[in-house]
Write a protein that binds this DNA or RNA. Structure first.
Length: 726
DNA sequence: TTAGTTAAGATTTTT
DNA sequence: TCTTAACTAA
C-alpha cells in the first residue's frame, strides 16, 4: 500500500528513506507524527519487516500511546501493537528487568520516584551529619539526577564538576546513596537509562541481542535527549545504523532535565552520510499565528536555519488583554470561552496555558464557579496523593522486603506507637550490621522497651503474612484490600470522620479498583509489574471520564498538542520568562522556545494576556508585560497601536509592597524614581547588598547598574524592589 | 510518644 | 497563601 498519498514531497522523502541515519527537522505542525507512523507502516507493509523489529522511542506515555493507535489504524489486524513503541524509561525498564542479574540485581527491584529518592537522600544526609536546612535535599537529588543524565557516575562525580563546597557534599551523599539503593534493591529514574547504557557498554553480547532484535530505530523529540539518552540511542542504532530521529531544535525546552540541543544540531557530524529532511510546511495554524511565532523565535541565535510557512487561509488577529490581577484574568478568559461555546465551539476546543502549575488555581476556581467541566493535564497526579503513596510504599515492602526506604515511610503510618527513638535504634543496628530494616525487627535490640518490641513485631507479622500471600499468587487487588484493612488505614480514616479523611478513604478504594482493572487487562497481572507501570505513569486517566472539557496545562505539557483556541495566560516578566531561568543566555533562549511552543499550539485563535499585579506569597506585586510581546510585531495583534500602552505602570498608583512599609528607613524605589544615584548602597532581595554604579534611561526604562561584590547586575528600576540603605 | 500549636519557608518546567 | 518543620504540653 502507498503510505505517501496526499503528502508533500519532503514528507514522502522522509518516509521512503528507510535505510541509514535520517534526521527529520519537523517544524511545529508539520505533520511529524503522520510521517513517523506512515514510515513504520511502510516498513512493515511494503518492506515486509516484522513489527517486532521496529522500535520507536518517545518521551511521554501519551505520545507513545498516540503513535501506537495511529500505526494500528494504518495496518490491519492489530499488527501495529506488535511494534515496540515505548518511552525511554519504559524501554529501559523492560531491558533492565530482563537483564537484572547482569547488574547484580533481582528482577523484582523497586523503582524510586522523586519522593522516595528524597527520603533516602534525607536519611543519608542525616547520617552524614549534614544540615538539611543549609543544603536542600531536593537540590542534591537534582544534582545527582543531572549527573546521571550526563553519564557521570558517583565514582567520577568530582572529576567532572568543579570542586566546591556544594559538589563535595553532593559527592559524599551520592556515593552513600548509591550504596544504600543497591542494598535495598532499588533504582531511581536516572538509573533506568544510565544503567542500561552501562550494560550495553560492558556487555557486547547483550547489546548484540538487542541490535539483532531491532532493525529499525526511531526517536521522537530528539532535541530533548540528554547525554545518557543520546548514548542509548547510539548503542541501539548500532550495527544496522538504521536510525531515524525526528525533532525541532526550536522546541527544545528540557535543558533543565539535561537535554542537550547540540544532540540534534550535530547529528550530521555524529552520523556521517546522514540524510536530512526539513518539514517546513505547517498544516496547523493561520499565517498570523505562524508569523508571530516565527518572528519571535528569530530572536534566538542558537538554532538551525529554517523557514516555516503555511498555505492555510488567513484568520483572526491575536487577542491581547491586560488585567488587574489573576482573578480578573481567569474570569475574563472563562467568559470568552463561554461565548465561544455559544458560537458552536466545544469546550475542548479551548486550552488555557500557564508557565507554572501554581497559576492553575485561579482558573480552576473560576471554572468551578461557572460549573464548566475542565481537566488539568500534568500537575498533581492521583498517584501523588499522600495516602496513595503510602499504600504503594506498603506494596513495595511486600514485593521487596529489602526496600527499607519504603518501609521507613510506613513504619509508623498510621501511627502505631513506633516512635522516633525506636526507629533510630533500629536504623543504627541496620547500618552497623549491614542488614535491612526488615531483618532488624527479629533482632533483640539493647535498650528497647517491651511495648515497642510488641508493636514492631505486630507490623512484621502483618507484612510477612501478606508477603506469603503474594508469593502464593494471591491477586494484587486482594492484597491491596487486605492491606487497607490490616494496616489500620481504614480504621484511622473512618475514625477521623472529616470530609477530607473520607475522601482519602475513597481514594484508597479507587486505588484498589485501579489494581483490579489492571489485573483483568494486563498481560502480566503481577503486583511487581503493576508497581513498575504506575511508577512511570504521568498524569493520564485521572478517573473522571468527562466528554467535553476545557483543557488546562503548563506550557511544557502542551508540547505536541494542538487546540482550536489557545489562551496563553500570565505573560509577565518574571513568570514568563521565568525569573529563575533568566540568569544565562541559554536560559533566556529556552524561555523563548517555550513561548514559541505555546503559540504554535493554536490552530485558529490565540489570545495572550498578562496581569498588572500578581500575588506572590500572599502579597501583591506589580508586574510588567513579558518582553515576548515586544518581539512580536504589532501587525499581528488586535487593537493595533494600543499595545505599547499595556502594562505601562504608573508608579504613583502602585501600592507599596508590604515589606517596605513597616520601616521608614526602607524606601521602595518604585515610588521614588530619580532618587537613585551612583554610589548609593542598596539591598536586593536576591543579590543582597550592593553599590549603584550607574543610572541610565528614563521613565519605565530607567535602569540601574549595581555591583554586588564582583558581580555586576542591571535592573529596571520600576520593577525591581530595592532598599536604600543608609 | 503524640497531638496540637506556632513559625518559618517556599514556587519552574517532569520522565 | 499554603505547607512543612520545629516546639510544647500532656
Amino acid at each position: 500500500m502507498d503510505f505517501t498519498i496526499g503528502l508533500n514531497e519532503e514528507q514522502k522523502k522522509a518516509i521512503l528513506q528507510t535505510e541509514g541515519p535520517v534526521l527529520i527537522f519537523a517544524g511545529a505542525g508539520s505533520g511529524k507524527t503522520r510521517v513517523i507512523t506512515h514510515r513504520i507502516a511502510h516498513l512493515i507493509d511494503n518492506l515486509e519487516n516484522f513489527p517486532e523489529s521496529i522500535c520507536a522511542v518517545t518521551f511521554t506515555n501519551k505520545a507513545a500511546e498516540e503513535m501506537r493507535e495511529r500505526v494500528n489504524h494504518l495496518l490491519p489486524g492489530g499488527i501495529g501493537s506488535r511494534v515496540v513503541i515505548k518511552t525511554f524509561h519504559s524501554l529501559c525498564l523492560m531491558i533492565l528487568r530482563r537483564e537484572a542479574k547482569h547488574l547484580g540485581f533481582l528482577s523484582g527491584f523497586t523503582i524510586y520516584d522523586t519522593s522516595l529518592q528524597e527520603s533516602l537522600i534525607k536519611e543519608v544526609m542525616k547520617d552524614l551529619k549534614m544540615d538539611i536546612k543549609q543544603l536542600k535535599p531536593s537540590s542534591i537529588v537534582h544534582a545527582i539526577s543531572r549527573s546521571k543524565d550526563a553519564m557521570v557516575s558517583h565514582i567520577k562525580y568530582l572529576d567532572h564538576y568543579e570542586k566546591d563546597f556544594f559538589s563535595e557534599k553532593v559527592d559524599a551523599v551520592f556515593s552513600e546513596y548509591e550504596k544504600r539503593k543497591e542494598q535495598r534493591q532499588a533504582l531511581d529514574f536516572g538509573d533506568l537509562i544510565f544503567r542500561t547504557v552501562e550494560l550495553f557498554k560492558n556487555n557486547k553480547k547483550i547489546l548484540h541481542q538487542y541490535n539483532t532484535k531491532f532493525k529499525y530505530l526511531m526517536v521522537d523529540e530528539y532535541q530533548d535527549t540528554n547525554k545518557a539518552q543520546y548514548e542509548l540511542v547510539k548503542y541501539l542504532a548500532g550495527e544496522s545504523g538504521n536510525l531515524c530521529v525526528v525533532g525541532d531544535d526550536d522546541q527544545s525546552i528540557y535543558s533543565w532535565r539535561g537535554a542537550d540541543i547540540s544532540n540534534i544540531l550535530s547529528f550530521h557530524k555524529d552520523y556521517p552520510n546522514s540524510f536530512i529532511v526539513k518539514l517546513e510546511e505547517n498544516y496547523r495554524s493561520t499565517p498570523t499565528i505562524l508569523g508571530a511565532a516565527s518572528t519571535l523565535i528569530a530572536n534566538n541565535t542558537n538554532r538551525s536555519d529554517k523557514t516555516i510557512f503555511t498555505n492555510n487561509p488567513d484568520g483572526n488577529k491575536i487577542g491581547l488583554f491586560s488585567y488587574e490581577n489573576e482573578a480578573e484574568e481567569a474570569e475574563s478568559i472563562i467568559k470568552q470561552i463561554i461565548k465561544s461555546k455559544q458560537e458552536n465551539k466545544k469546550f475542548s476546543d479551548h486550552a488555557i496555558f500557564y508557565r507554572t502549575n501554581a497559576q492553575s488555581r485561579y482558573f480552576e476556581e473560576a471554572l468551578r464557579r461557572y460549573s464548566i467541566p475542565y481537566k488539568i493535564f500534568g500537575g498533581f497526579r492521583f498517584f501523588d496523593r499522600k495516602e496513595i503513596k503510602d499504600i504503594i510504599a506498603y506494596l513495595n515492602t511486600i514485593v521487596n522486603p529489602l526496600d527499607s526506604t519504603s518501609l521507613m515511610r510506613i513504619i509508623n503510618t498510621p501511627s502505631r506507637g513506633i516512635g522516633e527513638t525506636t526507629i533510630e535504634k533500629m536504623n543504627r543496628i541496620s547500618l552497623e550490621e549491614g542488614i535491612s530494616l526488615f531483618e532488624v525487627i527479629d533482632r533483640t535490640i539493647p535498650g528497647m522497651k517491651k511495648g515497642a518490641i510488641v508493636k514492631v513485631q505486630e507490623l512484621k507479622k502483618m507484612l510477612s503474612d501478606l508477603q506469603d500471600k503474594h508469593e502464593k499468587k494471591k491477586s494484587p487487588s486482594e492484597i491491596a484490600y487486605e492491606l487497607i484493612e490490616r494496616s489500620g488505614m481504614r480504621e484511622e480514616m473512618e475514625n477521623e470522620g472529616t470530609e477530607e479523611s473520607i475522601s482519602r478513604l475513597e481514594n484508597l478504594n479507587e486505588f484498589v479498583n485501579s489494581v483490579k482493572d489492571y489485573e483483568t487487562n494486563a498481560e502480566d497481572p503481577s503486583l511487581e509489574e503493576f508497581l513498575n507501570q504506575i511508577s512511570l505513569l504521568t498524569s493520564e486517566e485521572d478517573t473522571a471520564n468527562l466528554e467535553d472539557y476545557v483543557v488546562l496545562m503548563t506550557v511544557h505539557n502542551s508540547k505536541g498538542l494542538e487546540f482550536d483556541t489557545v489562551f496563553l495566560s500570565g505573560m509577565e516578566e518574571g513568570t514568563f520568562p521565568h525569573s529563575l531561568s533568566m540568569d544565562s543566555d541559554t536560559g533566556a533562549e529556552e524561555e523563548r522556545r517555550l513561548a514559541y511552543v505555546a503559540i504554535t499550539r493554536a490552530k485558529r485563535k490565540l489570545v495572550i494576556s498578562f496581569c498588572r499585579f500578581t500575588r506572590k506569597f500572599g502579597n501583591v506585586e506589580p508586574r510588567i508585560r513579558s518582553r515576548f510581546f515586544d518581539e512580536i510585531p504589532e501587525q499581528f495583534f488586535e487593537e493595533m497601536g494600543e499595545k505599547k500602552q499595556y502594562g505601562v505602570r504608573k508608579p504613583s498608583h502602585a501600592p507599596i509592597p508590604k515589606r517596605f512599609t513597616s520601616d521608614d528607613s526602607k524606601v521602595d524605589v518604585n515610588t521614588k524614581n530619580g532618587s537613585l544615584q551612583p554610589g548609593l548602597k542598596i539591598r536586593h532581595k536576591v543579590y543582597g547588598v550592593g553599590i549603584i554604579t550607574k543610572v541610565s534611561g528614563n521613565g519605565e526604562n530607567e535602569k540601574v547598574e549595581v555591583k554586588f561584590g564582583n558581580l555586576d547586575k542591571k535592573f529596571l528600576i520600576a520593577y525591581t524592589p530595592l532598599e536604600i540603605l543608609n
